[in-house]
Structure formats: structure tokens, C-alpha cells
Amino acid sequence: MRSLKATRPPQPKRDPAPSRWGYRYQRLMLTPGFRRMLRVGVPVLVIGGLIAGWGAREANRQMVADAYADMKSQIQQRDEFMVKVMAVDGADDTLAADIRTVLPIEFPLSSFDLDLEDMRQTVAALPAVADARLRVRPGGILQVNVTQRVPVAMFRAPTGLKLIDADGVLIQNIIARADRSDLPLITGDGAREALAEGLEIYRVAGPLAPRMRGVVRMGERRWDVILDSGQRVLLPNTDPVPAFERVVAMNQAQDLLERDVAVVDMRHPARPTIRLNEQAVTNLREINAASE
């Protein structure tokens, strides 16, 4: 009798052993280097290849560059980064105007487009500026802080009158002496180098000061003091200030310069010499002759 149970189809038992190639494949997949290559190398290659293929077209590259530039300008043109005005501190009106002239900026402008260092050098290159600091203040203000040079004397150059500061730097041209009559006048070759000495001569002038028209550097080694009415005081190479003090003292004691004297020569310290005017000499001779 046949079994009443449903007969199972003769199913061949599956071989549990992996095939030779399956075995090799699994071993390959267990190799660390190969796995790393699959995990990192293949995605990198695929993505890199896609990007390279897409970027091979000029239009695509241009599109990326445009989009980048557009985004960059959008960020840079935001309100927070815009500079709207320039504020100049520490400069008088003329200098402020000069600064605005040398920094021709059309506001509003993005602060990314400002080259502060370059602008600082431009401002500092102005003769009247000792030092300059630039920064963009919150609120869109370009702050220019300037330390101005202080004029201490007026310098007469062959080209005209100029203001000069304590370091001997020429600050600005000036049209007439009368514009800054409070400042002493200094002139001559090498006067700028010996400026301190010239100013010292002015300082010791005392009662003679109103009469002084200026000091002249002679031959880049010594000073002449010019008084009004064309009188000259010739000072020595060394120690000109005590010599001038002596002149001042002599003037106070003997009214030396009230007389008809053309030149007071102090170049020899032991022997001050006076040159009289022609008229005075004639008069003196006449007086001498009359007294004899």
C-alpha cells in the first residue's frame, strides 16, 4: 500500500558549501584594503567623475562661477556691511577737505570693497598729516582719525612761503606772510635741518622780537638775524644763542640797534664788530674831523 501522505517532491539537498567563486568573493570582501576602496574610493570616483563630466562644459562652469559671484555680492551688499558716510576727526577744515579729496569714495559702498590699509597710506601721505587711523565703525561710518602736524614756523623757500612743523616737514603753502604773522620766519639752505636752533634764537630775542623779520641760515653753517630796516646780526657757527643774547643785552644797554648800524657782526665772539651805514660813516668822519 502506498503511503497516504502527500509525497514530497524529490528536492535535492542544497549544498551548504559556497562555490569556489563565492568563496573567493567573500574573502575579497573581507580584505581590509579592498573594503576601504569600496567604501571610500568608489564613491569618490563616482562623484568626482560626475562632477568632472558636468564641469567639462564651459557653460556649466560659467554658471557656477556666476552663481558664486552673485551670492558673494549679495552677502557683501547687505545693509550691515554698507558704509554710508565718512567721518574725519582731528583735522581742521582745510585738511578734512583735502582728505575727502584724496579719498574719493562714492557712498554707499560695501566695507568688503574698502582697502583700509591702502587708504590709510594715502591719507598719511598728505603733508599735513602726522598719523592716520581708519576703521569702519558700526552704523556704516568710515572713521578717519588724523593727527595733524602743528606748524611752528614759516619757511621761505625759493618757490614760496610754507608752514613747517617741529620735525622740519613742510606742511602747506601759504600765500602771504601776514596770514600767519604769529609764526617766526626762517629761511636759507639747511634751515630746516637746524630748525630747533633757529627757533631758540627767536625765543631769546625778548624785546627785540617785534623788530625781527626772520632768521636766515647762511651757507648751511650759521645764522643771520634780519631785523626790520634791513639790519643784520651775524651770529657765529658755534653757540649762536649766547651771542644773540649778548646783542640783545647790548641793545638794551646802549640802544645799539637804534643807531644807524647796518650789520652787527658777532662771528668773532671776543670782538663784536659793527658796520655802519654809509651816511653814518660820513657823519662819523665829519664829527671826528670836527673834534680834531
Binding site: P16, A17, P18, Y23, Q26, R27, L30, P32
Partner: peptide
Amino acid sequence: ERAIRTAVQAAQKMANVR
């Protein structure tokens, strides 16, 4: 050979190393 392959493959799989 097949039996060895089976054993080695299973052990490798468990160890996760070749």
C-alpha cells in the same frame, strides 16, 4: 575541499576578517 571551504568561510564571516 568544499567542506573546508564551508567551515573557513563561516569562521571568517564570524571573525569578520580574512
